[in-house]
Amino acid sequence: MPPANLSHRRTHNLLLISKLLSLRDTTSPLTVLLDSLEQPAAPLMREYIRRTKLSKIHVTFVSFETLKRPCGVDSFVVARRKRSSDVAREVANAYSSPSAGGPQLLTYHRDMPSPSGLPSYSPSPLSILTYLATTIFTLHPLSQVLVQKAACDRSLAAPVFGLEEQQDGLIVGQLEKTKGQESVDGIVLEMEHRRRSGRYVVERYILPPAMRYSPQQAKEVVTLLDDHPLYRRPEESGEGVEDEITSTFELRLTDRQRREREGVVLPYFDAQQGNGPGEGGRILYDMGEEDDFDDEEDEI
């Protein structure tokens, strides 16, 4: 995918994430959240629930992991030791209308190896999920993304955290809470959204911690990662100034000048619309008055 320009991405992708997070318009029927111990998906789940509450959507929470009902959930199904058909029935019962089938949100811990008892020829659960998903969010903590970026900027190997460190006794990495004066809380969402047309959109966003905005806020809180003050490159901020060179000469073009300049047919233009490569190295040359054509030169 070509690097689209930032303002274009800002308009389109922020609209997209807003739609995705509020589960509107059947934008994404199956969203998979890939989390890890470094950045659990619970804050993002709470953000999803908060938004569905604002738009008054029924939320059914199917839990494999917790017995505690999350705040704001309409119906809560514990799937512990149940057959999948039983769970499906309970979920269906949770809805009042029989034709239920809203968008689905699913969390997968990407730092857990796939279980050992699987048949060796079938794909891993993660492969199946990422194949079926229409949107995949991979979650990272902002502090670690910043540290990794700082290393990449200096052409160093990006550091790894937690289980990836492969150090004896380490399960969860340590989070750096502040950088300078600014706190670096927040979740980086690495999104891959597959459109119905088959095209895909890749973008990185940042979700600020829930303390920074009110639960009733309807305005979008997610921003692009590239817009984050700590992530943005310092030289990019000077880009706008560069356009305005102060000089005594008028360097810019008027509209008329620009139109005329676009109308000029360049000499090699003719060669580009030739009939394929067969024409080869023909030289286009018009004799001028002062040219002295030498017959004998051809004979050599």
């Binding site: 111990l37 619970a42 917790t66 811990h109 380490l170 969860v172 990495g173 829930a210």
Partner: peptide, 11 residues
């Protein structure tokens, strides 16, 4: 000894 937040940590 390192203390960390687990996956069920709540803000």
């Amino acid at each position: 000894l390192r203390t960390s937040r687990g996956g069920a940590w709540e803000e």
